[in-house]
């Protein structure tokens, strides 16, 4: 991690849907190579914020730059430098493993050669060589999720945004998933990850906890536990979540 280089800068971010404020004055920074946990109950406003950071929707106000690019004016450049795994599963079920990789590599402008070389390494790493030409629909969920993550960082982005990547996955697979995240982080990719599994919060370098659209706490897991006098992140979260109104 390089604390001197900030790859995400958010200052006074507001996002309103009519009268409802989904993101209420968010301000934070994320360093290069950091694993940044973005926590909050359902309906806290995590997805709303992630979509703004990815250039999928515009903020109502605020100054935001991602990978050094302004989210209002430099969307095209921004998009080339990020990866995104949405909270819905996002590979094509009717395409094979290889066809999915080839397609996503292709839309990021990678050549067939690059794609093929990298695919081999990737399939070895995931132990998926045998399923190379199988349709995604025939894979178990855990493998799909790991593959979706690998596809999201296939074009070697500076930052990857993961929106509840481990939803519905068993604990063993979640552990393996986090191994992949660590590996990507070691390779220099900044990880911005939302989750509501509190044990996963412990794996992050820093976490922010959102309640009702506001960031109520932001620090390393160790410091947060000290601050809230808690044994684990679960207790930290509970003491904050009691204040919540907009729980879905």
């Amino acid at each position: 991690m390089n604390k001197d280089v900030k790859v995400i800068r958010v200052k006074n971010l507001y996002k309103k849907f009519g009268d409802f404020t989904a993101n209420d004055n968010l301000s934070f920074e994320v360093s290069k190579g950091e694993i940044f946990g973005f926590l909050g109950a359902n309906g806290a406003g995590k997805t709303t914020a992630i979509k703004i950071l990815c250039g999928l929707s515009y903020p109502s106000s605020g100054e935001i730059s991602v990978a050094g690019f302004d989210v209002y004016k430099e969307r095209e450049l921004l998009k080339r430098n990020i990866g995104y795994m949405s909270q819905k599963f996002s590979l094509y079920e009717d395409l094979t493993v290889y066809e999915n990789i080839r397609f996503y590599g292709g839309i990021y402008g990678m050549t067939k050669q690059e794609i093929d070389t990298k695919t081999n390494g990737l399939l070895d790493q995931l132990d998926l060589q045998h399923s190379r030409n199988k349709r995604i629909s025939s894979l178990p969920l855990g493998w799909k999720q790991k593959l979706a993550f690998s596809v999201a960082i296939f074009h070697n982005p500076e930052i990857v945004f993961l929106d509840e990547p481990t939803g519905g996955v068993d604990p063993v697979t979640r552990r393996q998933f986090w191994d992949l995240i660590y590996e990507a982080s070691r390779a220099g990719i900044t990880i911005f990850v939302t989750t509501h599994y509190m044990d996963e919060a412990e794996y992050c370098d820093r976490v922010s906890i959102m309640v009702d659209g506001r960031v109520e706490a932001l620090d390393t897991p160790t410091k947060l536990k000290e601050q809230f006098n808690a044994l684990d992140m679960d207790q930290v979260f509970l003491s904050l979540a009691r204040k919540a109104k907009n729980v879905e």
Partner: peptide, 14 residues
Amino acid sequence: ELGTMEILLVSPLN
């Protein structure tokens, strides 16, 4: 519906 549209919109494709 499947969520792949978001992935396409996040990609450099316009």
